[in-house]
């Protein structure tokens, strides 16, 4: 067993800003002929280096545009870093934009299977977990209804239920602790707390320092794509408070 759950080694992520909106051949050819295909380089992350031990709960702090979401996407494997590498030990489940991977024509039940498959689980595993997921999402009556007829609250509840009931090793939380109504929010916080006890590794992004302090034992601060502090939550929180004053 490796000691670390996540190793981020000298990660840099470069974007070519001007290139992003070119999606028609005509535009491309015109720009190319005019010699306007300039690449406006922008490093969203640079030389980011840190390790997360198994069972750690790491808060990622930083102002808007500091590169927090980019870092999470690199760790989740959605972005391939321009430089450096990320090593993950264990199964990672992201809890970002809940329900964005659902198919609206599919029923709730079908989406449970589809979504779990996307997360890399097997059919047998989902068969076992199916009832728990439905029960946790409180959707027993609507599970055979197409998702397009769901309310947005029902969708997020289902997304949350799937991502947490599958027992991931690494959980990525991007300000999602405000799911559904007050009752469900309480339930989801309790669920996350109980997952903390079962030694899951957590990466947590939030603008609320209080919430980070309450949930995490470690933290890092990003500023303009650079890692400027990392360590125990109290030390790092003090630095962050100093910075945001």
């Amino acid at each position: 067993m490796a000691k670390y759950a996540i190793e981020v080694n000298d990660v840099g992520m470069k974007f070519n800003l001007s290139q992003e909106k070119l999606d028609s051949l005509k535009e491309y050819v015109i720009k190319m002929l005019k010699g306007q295909l300039k690449y406006n380089e922008f490093w969203a992350l640079k030389n980011v280096n840190f390790k997360v031990e198994k069972g750690d709960r790491v808060g990622i702090l930083g102002l808007n545009g500091a590169g927090k979401s980019t870092l999470l996407k690199v760790i989740a494997g959605v972005f391939k870093p321009t430089e450096g590498s990320v090593v993950r030990h264990g199964r990672l489940v992201p809890l970002l934009e809940l329900g964005a991977g659902f198919d609206s024509q599919y029923t709730g039940a079908e989406n449970i299977y589809l979504y779990s498959a996307v997360l890399g689980y097997s059919k047998e595993f989902v068969d076992r977990k199916f009832d728990e997921i439905v029960k946790f999402a409180e959707l027993e009556k609507f599970i055979d209804v197409p998702i397009k007829n769901y309310s947005s609250g029902m969708k997020t509840r289902l997304g949350f239920a799937i991502a947490t009931q599958v027992e991931p090793d690494i959980l990525i939380l991007d300000e999602v602790l405000s799911v559904g109504d007050a009752k469900f929010r309480k339930k989801s916080e309790a669920k996350i707390m109980s997952m903390f006890k079962s030694n899951v590794t957590v990466l947590f992004v939030s603008h609320s320092l209080d919430q980070v302090k309450r949930l995490c034992n470690k933290a890092i601060i990003l500023e303009h794509g650079q890692l400027i502090a990392s360590g125990d939550i109290d030390e790092v929180a003090a630095i962050y408070e100093e910075k945001t004053k």
């Binding site: 198919d103 024509q105 599919y106 079908e110 299977y113 589809l114 498959a117 996307v118 890399g120 689980y121 097997s122 059919k123």
Partner: peptide, 20 residues
């Protein structure tokens, strides 16, 4: 191997949704 189930699910989805 790990994503075999996903492949099967996507194939199933394509067939199901085509004539739904």
């Amino acid at each position: 191997k790990r994503y075999r189930f996903l492949l099967r699910e996507l194939v199933k989805k394509g067939i199901k949704l085509k004539y739904r």
